[in-house]
Amino acid sequence: MDWLLHADTTGEKLVLMVVAVLMFVAVMGLILFATDRIRSLPPWVVGVIFVTPVVLALGFGLVYPAIETIKESFYDRSGAFVGLDNYVAAFTRDEFQVVLRNTAVWVVVVPLASTAIGLLYAVLVDRARFEKFAKTLIFLPMAISLVGASIIWKFVYAYRPVLEGVPAENQPNQIGLLNQMLVWFGLEPQQWLINSPANTYFLIVVMVWIQAGFAMTILAAAIRAIPTDIVEAARLDGLGGTRMFRYITVPSIRPALVVVITTIAMATLKVFDIVRTMTGGNFNTSVVSYEFYRQSFVQRNTGLGAALAVILFVLVIPIVVYNVRQMRRAEEIR
């Protein structure tokens, strides 16, 4: 039965997958069958049976680990209690100053840029010919993994070293599109991912590239939902074009805008794949979520890693509270 734990061949893996699914189906089937058979069960017992697996899973997999991590953040790597030292380190050590600054830049720039582009695009292609196709193009990056997206953009930024004292026509060809464009304009190729602090913005481009599609989808739906009579009335008052956008469209979809911005902000806080794939956190590009990964799994500095995870958690909370409030308000309006 070794394949149950160590499936090595494709066949074994597929069998293991089928066995696992069948086991799950069998267990659930048995529970449900029994629940249905025993007629005398009061409804609340059925309810408890239905939610028990979920409560156990969440307790084991989220609540308990979260508490452990919070506890862990007060200890150093040798297991000695250090109070708030890990948090102090995370906020004061020089190397982390850059990390915090970068995280702030990410959380501000990504949501605003994605939403602005998404909104612009949604307005432009709304009811245009090929609308569906046009939307799919912007939307497609959402289907790709962040690792894949990072590789796509790393290739755009690819850099071939410029040889000193060699005339321009004998320089090695640039293979990255961005540098080639500089060459076409007669400029010097750049190491986009190495020159700090601009490199952080070139990483941010990847996240904006992915999130703009999300913003566009939600905002396009919100624009559709603006009541016709409002638009009609505004038009009779002589509003059109940009003024219509400014005075009717944007105020009408304000709740959706807020939700989009806060949702992207939360996603951005937690993202570490882009930094890891593109620069490995080097050249002053690290962010809190990547630093968590590095401290926990590379440096084996679990206490500090735990503190960073807790900081991440705390940073998310105000955004969530604001988001939920806005959602409530939006629903009241409806």
Partner: peptide
Amino acid sequence: VPLQIALIP
């Protein structure tokens, strides 16, 4: 809850 907080335990 960010996943990060649950991983190590």
